[in-house]
């Protein structure tokens, strides 16, 4: 009757954090309260809670991601950035993070508004559609871009709201948000040395920004 083998403890393992996740962690004060929207397998949440003593919570759309996270002891709910953020009260968190997810939301503007409302700071990272290689693919090949970071063809991608770094900065302005920190990541996730937004927009594969309400 006892199926003890199926109850054997499996070691909770997390993949190593990516460079962009380490950079996000650097933008977060230790021992703060963080909500990671679209937390995937929980790598960033785990990094924040173990390395920085953060009270880290997550929202994740995929059932598998959620189950993995909770089984590893993380505080994660199955939910949707587009519909679940409205349930959180104002200033519930110090930081609300949206890592590589903005472009997959149905209503990016509302999502960002909620993030700025729920958190004292919002941290957003996203693939930059203004990168020269993406521009070149459209300009010279006449096709929707497919890159190592964005591998799905147009008909099969969950990414329905691509933007450039310049577009994102415009949205932040429209929402009256202040950019506290900004960085663009190059080919291997390393931050670009230049600090000018037009350089970011042309050479950054990803943009990463920390914003706050003015």
């Amino acid at each position: 009757m006892l199926e003890s083998h199926s109850f054997r403890r499996r070691r909770a393992a997390f993949p190593a954090p990516r460079v962009d996740e380490l950079l996000i962690a650097d933008m977060v004060e230790p021992h703060s309260r963080v909500l990671d929207v679209g937390c995937g397998d929980g790598t960033l949440l785990n990094l924040l809670s173990t390395e920085r003593g953060v009270d880290a919570r997550g929202i994740e759309l995929s059932h598998k991601g959620v189950n993995d996270c909770v089984a590893k002891g993380l505080s994660v709910i199955q939910g949707d950035a587009d519909t679940d953020l409205e349930n959180y009260p104002d200033d519930a968190f110090d930081y609300v993070i949206l890592s590589q997810t903005l472009q997959a939301t149905r209503h990016p503007r509302q999502v960002l508004e909620h993030m700025l409302r729920i958190g004292r700071h919002a941290i957003v990272s996203f693939p930059n559609f203004g990168h020269w290689r993406i521009r070149a693919q459209i300009a010279f090949l006449g096709h929707m871009p497919v890159t190592p970071n964005l591998q799905a063809p147009w008909y099969d991608t969950p990414n329905i709201h691509f933007c450039t770094i310049s577009d994102f900065l415009d949205l932040a302005k429209a929402l009256d948000a202040r950019i506290e920190r900004g960085v663009a990541l190059g080919r291997f996730g390393t931050p670009l040395k230049a600090n000018a937004p037009w350089v970011w927009n042309l050479f950054g594969e990803q943009g990463m920004f920390r914003l706050t309400r003015k």
């Binding site: 393992a13 190593a16 460079v19 173990t50 472009q103 693939p127 970071n149 291997f188 996730g189």
Partner: peptide, 16 residues
Amino acid sequence: KQPAEAAKPASEQTDN
């Protein structure tokens, strides 16, 4: 304790 591993470059990600 969780096992600690070194960081990998961001180019391995497939986010779309």
